[in-house]
Design a protein around this nucleic acid. Structure first.
Length: 175
DNA sequence: AGACTAACGTAATCAATGT
DNA sequence: ACATTGATTACGTTAGTCT
């Protein structure tokens, strides 16, 4: 399978018998990491414009850029905590608060018919694999990263209603 | 085998949109 | 005002890469 649509290399899916549920892991090149680190130093919270510019510049999907920044912020926080584990005397050690300057991604509109497709898929499987998500993306025309977010939000807001419990567990007891 | 880290999970929250 | 819901965050976990 190709694996060469970008300058980044993807893992060669070691022929796992169980179908992979995650997307193949991206391996960043040295120069890609360089650019990411440089931009991170300028702004650890890049907006959609910067992320999309980076995505084009590095030939990496924007969603992967976004995840890289999420992971990198965490690495930085952990690291700075180790450095200042007991040397917190100078005052607050700059909690790296998020002053979100740049604009977010514009809200994606999902039509009722698209929502129906997603709902049906959700009932079949609340944790769709990358293949399933891409299939849904193809069916609906919604980008796969947006579908992933849709499922995350859906799971959080519609918790499983006791799969093995009684069907009518709506009434929370009379008062 | 262990370190590193991309991918992915939840929970809370921000924010746009519709009522 | 308020409900709904997409987007973003911090933080924890899973799993592929590399030494």
């Amino acid at each position: 399978m190709d694996s060469s649509s970008s300058s980044g290399t993807y893992s060669t899916s070691r022929g796992r018998l169980s179908r992979p549920s995650r997307r193949r892991r991206l391996v960043l090149s040295l120069s890609q990491k360089d650019t990411l680190q440089a931009l991170f130093q300028q702004n650890p919270y890049p907006g959609i414009t910067t992320r999309e510019w980076l995505a084009r510049e590095l030939d990496i999907p924007e969603s992967r850029i976004q995840v890289w920044f999420q992971n990198q912020r965490r690495r930085r926080l952990k690291q700075s905590r180790l450095l200042s584990e007991n040397a917190f005397k100078g005052g607050q050690s700059q909690p790296l608060r998020p002053p979100p300057p740049e604009a977010r991604r514009k809200r994606t509109f999902i039509s009722p018919s698209q929502t129906r497709v997603l709902m049906q898929a959700f009932e079949r499987d609340r944790f769709p694999s990358i293949a399933a998500r891409e299939e849904l993306a193809h069916q609906t025309g919604i980008p796969e990263p947006r579908i992933q977010i849709w499922f995350q939000n859906r799971r959080a807001r519609h918790p499983k209603q006791s799969a093995s419990g009684p069907v009518n567990a709506l009434a929370k007891g009379p008062d």
